[in-house]
Design a binder for these strands. Structure first.
Lengths: 255, 255
DNA sequence: CGCAGAGTTGATACCAGTCAACAAAAGTGG
DNA sequence: CCACTTTTGTTGACTGGTATCAACTCTGCG
């Protein structure tokens, strides 16, 4: 038992080369020697508590972050104090790019769970990237993926009604869980109904009703934050605006 | 007269160093010799016609584009054929970053007016950027600004009602016109009501009604696509969710 | 001049926000 | 470990903003 503890600590220390997220994160597609250069500039933080912030609006861009586990949300606060959830971040997804434009953060990044984070000082990252074409390429790709998620988010909000947004949200989240090697059919939501509502641009009551409805239709099973996807096909269909006969039938059977 | 023609042509050929957009576009903050390296890889296209496309969904990322004049929209087409306007692009704003993530474009870029475009082959850009830290930095900044605009777009859509969205849209557009040295109080919209509707996630009738209402309240004057902002302060106020007494009063006076 | 596309305006229906009460879960302290 | 508080989630009734359908007008253009 003492020995396995030692091994675990050693693994934590060994950094990017052993990280399970290697293929998703900055190291993807980088050779062994080069990987070491990246690894040297990555600072591993102590675990952050739920509710802790990585940065706040106005903070200078000093580093970008990647969660090794846990989850984060980024929130932008409008002048009237309304909080808009800009994105959720699962392990391997870069956090902090919102500061690229102006050099200071527009959002705050809040931990939704206890989490371990890799902190990558931005100036060093830029420096190393300019020396390693493969890292530069991967950096641009990761930034691009983040832009892509933002666009998906946009598509989720515009001209879609509440039930569609919710289906799309669950569908997308399931896919992201699968990508990082977790179950895409059974998971615990790291965020509250309110967070989801602020992400989807809905009232929290509407989100709650949407979940219930999906459950009534036999598409998912929900207990609090535990979600099981029972009919992934139907969920995908709802996400793309279709309301299949299947669901209609199930509803009528109950009535 | 012949002489001035020659001068004009020469100026067009002289490229980035003489471009009025220098401070907004990729060259910003780059030294004279380095600028030449960037200039050498930029291809100047013949003018593109209104309705012409720079790229389509699925096209490989071969270049990024910057309009020297005119305007573009980027449109993402969902599987059910619905067109969502992802962004409008004025001169100096990078077009084509949507392909960074997957290496192929997710959107199509359509010219809203006749326009001149600089085309920057992406592989060459990446190569030169890795050799010129100042260009790399500027590239990241321009990308960041684009991310910032996307986030503004998001904030424009979520939990804001129609009139707010429209006010915010006009307010933001005016600011962008000012940034490129054009009038921020009087301009011609390069896009149709339908484009605006698809950008704001509204029905086109709602956009039309919104414009009329702003006009009735004395905030703007609209004739077709010509817009004049009469009360910028009030517009800013409406954009941030306030419905001032001023406007209410004007409305009651009419009634 | 006449046509097609773009924009405006009106009437109606419905989705989702709001207010309110309640239920369940998660902390908290004795 | 249990009672208490607080937070989080669910459900119902009502209202209002916006989409939709439809008719009409205006503008630019061949």
């Amino acid at each position: 038992m003492g020995e396995s503890m030692v091994l675990d600590v050693a693994r934590l220390r060994r950094g990017c080369a052993q990280c399970s997220l290697q293929q998703l994160c900055l190291p993807a597609g980088i050779g062994a020697q080069d990987l070491q250069r990246l690894d040297e500039i990555v600072r591993r933080r102590r675990p952050v508590e739920r509710g802790e912030r990585l940065f706040r609006p106005g903070d200078a861009l000093s580093a970008v972050y990647v969660a090794r586990d846990g989850a984060f949300k980024t929130v932008s606060i409008s002048e009237d104090g309304e909080e808009q959830v800009v994105g959720f971040h699962l392990p391997g997804e870069l956090i902090g790019l919102d500061a690229l434009g102006a050099g200071e953060h527009r959002c705050e990044a809040v931990a939704l769970t206890i989490a371990n984070v890799c902190e990558v000082p931005f100036d060093l990252l830029a420096e190393v990237a300019s020396q390693l074409p493969s890292l530069q390429q991967q950096l641009l790709r990761v930034i691009g993926q983040s832009v892509g998620r933002d666009q998906d988010h946009l598509g989720m909000l515009v001209r879609r009604q509440a039930n569609e947004r919710i289906a799309l949200f669950l569908h997308g989240l399931a896919e992201r869980f699968r990508n990082i090697g977790e179950s895409g059919t059974q998971f615990k939501l790291p965020m509250s109904r309110e967070d989801i509502a602020r992400y989807l641009g809905l009232a929290l009551e509407t989100v709650s009703r949407g979940f219930t409805r999906l459950q009534d239709d036999g598409v998912i099973a929900v207990v609090g934050r535990r979600v099981e996807i029972l009919d992934a096909e139907e969920l995908a269909c709802l996400a793309h605006g279709g309301d299949s006969d299947e669901a209609a039938e199930r509803r009528s059977r109950r009535a």
